[in-house]
Design a protein around this nucleic acid. Sequence first.
DNA 1: GCAAAAGTGTTACAATTACACCCATGC
DNA 2: GCATGGGTGTAATTGTAACACTTTTGC
Lengths: 228, 228
Amino acid sequence: MLDVAPPKYPHEVLAVVLRVRDGRLEVLLWRRAEKPYAARWALPGGALGAHERLGTAIARHLADKVDVREIAHLEQLETRSDPRRDPRGRVLATAYLGVVPSDAEPSLPQDTAWHAVDGLPPTAFDHGSLVESGRARLGAKLSYTTIGFALAPKAFTMSQLRDIYSAALGHQVSATNLQRVLLRRHVIERTDITAPPTESGGRPAAVYRFPDRSLRVTDEFPAFRPRS
Amino acid sequence: MLDVAPPKYPHEVLAVVLRVRDGRLEVLLWRRAEKPYAARWALPGGALGAHERLGTAIARHLADKVDVREIAHLEQLETRSDPRRDPRGRVLATAYLGVVPSDAEPSLPQDTAWHAVDGLPPTAFDHGSLVESGRARLGAKLSYTTIGFALAPKAFTMSQLRDIYSAALGHQVSATNLQRVLLRRHVIERTDITAPPTESGGRPAAVYRFPDRSLRVTDEFPAFRPRS
DNA sequence: GCAAAAGTGTTACAATTACACCCATGC
DNA sequence: GCATGGGTGTAATTGTAACACTTTTGC
């Protein structure tokens, strides 16, 4: 099939790293110093190494921007191939979705900052639309997988988790129903610990946690399935 | 970021083209003539052209194996990057999922044939696991999108559609409930035409169709959403 | 009339939403 | 006691599965 030497292309990896903070969904961006798109905000990433897998490459590049140990989940999103997506020349790009718990406090380099996903500043290349892809993927998976573990702290109250889900989904979520749905599916479990009330008082809240901190599909799409 | 010239890699596109025939889910494979993996079955595809997008490339390569006009739906699946996935040297591969209606009868070249997805012959490279990815994606999307249009003929009876869904999902589906679910979501609509009974007799069946033959999400994951 | 397949009516069941109400704490 | 959230009980709603029964044809 490959009679002649096949053409080769530079390949980069990018990451849409999301977290919830102050009730908003945020994405990690760094400010470009040089042309093209000087002073615009861009996704972290970089070139794929000669003997590297894509997943390893994105972890390596992210290490320059954040403490990778803070990234609780990482999955492949999509590969972009528009020949004109980089004005300097053709570069293929595979984007990943990364998720950081809301209580993580990674120290960031000078040029790097979190930005609210709603109302992004001007972005470089096709990175703005990749952020949208990442947000959509996270929103969908919150409803049928355990990906919430990556967004939440190790231990949390239901109101904290409600605020996290609300911000990530972009609409109000009821703590009452969230608790019941997640408990029934065994996505979260209650611990013996209770948290003290906040300044404004109120009953102390029970502390919950995700029993397994890895991705698992909980809601096999029920349509057209025998009840078993 | 790219101070030195970045490394370049050969990039190929592959397609997992699925259809339902004789009550089984089938994938399009071609038999390799040369090493490596001589005589093994492989996914159609080929190199990415210098100024080409991935989607265009896979359509071009597929044209060698099938009449591309028969492919009712095509979407990106995932990108594989294991440096050893091709023993001849490193090749990145982006796989697509293609879907062909069950009544299409594309003529195939000598080396190409449909194979039941259950019980595949030995395959080349990592193509076997890509077929699994494709099957999983199709199965999930059948439940929450209109992707069924790509699998079904333009017009069909409910029993035909039931057989198609059963084969693609790998479990029994009730025509009664399938009809109601798809009608309520306006995924299918009834036409004025009735089909004559088969040889074994029986009441003539109403003919249905998919009103829009493009992908649409029908079942926004309902979890945690206000009823609005 | 009878067999076969299609289609409808109806009930059962499961999951979720909405909301009223009770609980536990600080002040 | 009362304000403030946390949490439970429960009814309403929705969507799907299961299945009996009716309809429409060929022979």
